[in-house]
């Protein structure tokens, strides 16, 4: 028996919004530790890794490890039927071929359930090594989304250049070129507004705008985003989901041909 409950459907809606543009379907691996999802996007350029810890749920029970392959378009249709404040419960029997989403209104007067067929997805899991990154930048998630959106008007690629002075995002194309520099904040009233840089070595890497923009769909989940970079390895864009877990996106850098 698997059962996981969140007191507000909005969290699950935001999680789904953060992955559904990159992935058509994905396997949710459930264990007593929580729910894990790892999947490459359709073109295998980026990897999504989602962790929702069992202690972050309002109720969580998983008697046996369970892998649930879900069509995210179908899941999205179902979650649209929930109000943001509804309690959402996901349920499945052991070895089931369906999962049930149950939504309950705050006043308990409306209860709806939606059963969705599960899929058998043959997905390979990638082993992601622990890495010490040359540069780790933390910044407001909204600011990062804004930068990605603004720069994508100028080119298909963004160069992220990080030194101890700050981080620079650049793009260029037919229109011309654009540069956005962010310095480390010296003092801020609110922690979520801070820009911080931990640098061992400066890095300069090029990434595809469209993937960065897709990652920023996770912005509603978190005030801050963390960018981890080293030369010649994938960028990690991490959004922490308060009290529940995190979503990490890995993106292969563009390299000179």
């Amino acid at each position: 028996m698997f059962e996981a409950r969140l007191n507000a459907a909005t969290t699950l809606k935001k999680v789904l919004d953060a992955i559904k543009d990159l992935l058509n379907e994905a396997t949710f691996d459930c264990s007593d530790a929580g729910i894990q999802l790892q999947a490459m996007d359709n073109s295998h350029v980026s990897l999504v890794s989602l962790t929702l810890r069992s202690d972050g749920f309002d109720k969580f029970r998983c008697d046996r490890n369970l892998s649930m392959g879900m069509n995210l378009g179908s899941m999205s249709k179902i979650l649209k039927c929930a109000n943001n404040e509804d309690t959402v419960t996901m349920k499945a029997q052991d070895n089931a071929d369906t999962v049930t989403f149950m939504f309950e209104s705050q006043n308990h007067e409306k209860v709806s359930d939606y059963e969705m067929k599960l899929m058998n997805l043959d997905q390979e899991h990638l082993g992601i090594p622990e890495t010490d990154y040359s540069c780790v930048v933390r910044m407001p998630a909204m600011e990062f989304a804004r930068i990605c959106r603004d720069l994508s008007q100028f080119g298909e690629s963004v160069i992220i250049c990080c030194t101890k002075e700050g981080v620079k995002f650049s793009a260029s194309g037919d229109v011309g070129s654009a540069n956005i520099k962010l310095a480390q904040t010296s003092s801020v009233d609110k922690e979520e507004e801070a820009v911080t840089i931990e640098m061992q070595e400066p890095v300069s890497l090029t990434f595809a705008c469209r993937y960065l923009n897709a990652f920023t769909k996770a912005t509603p989940l978190s005030n801050q985003v963390q960018l981890s970079m080293s030369a010649d390895v994938p960028l990690v864009v991490e959004y922490r989901i308060p009290d529940l877990g995190h979503i990490r996106y890995y993106l292969a850098p563009k390299i000179e041909e």
Partner: peptide, 13 residues
Amino acid sequence: MAQTSIASYFNTR
């Protein structure tokens, strides 16, 4: 510039 597969950076488990 070329875009490589993310899988080439990580080991298959």
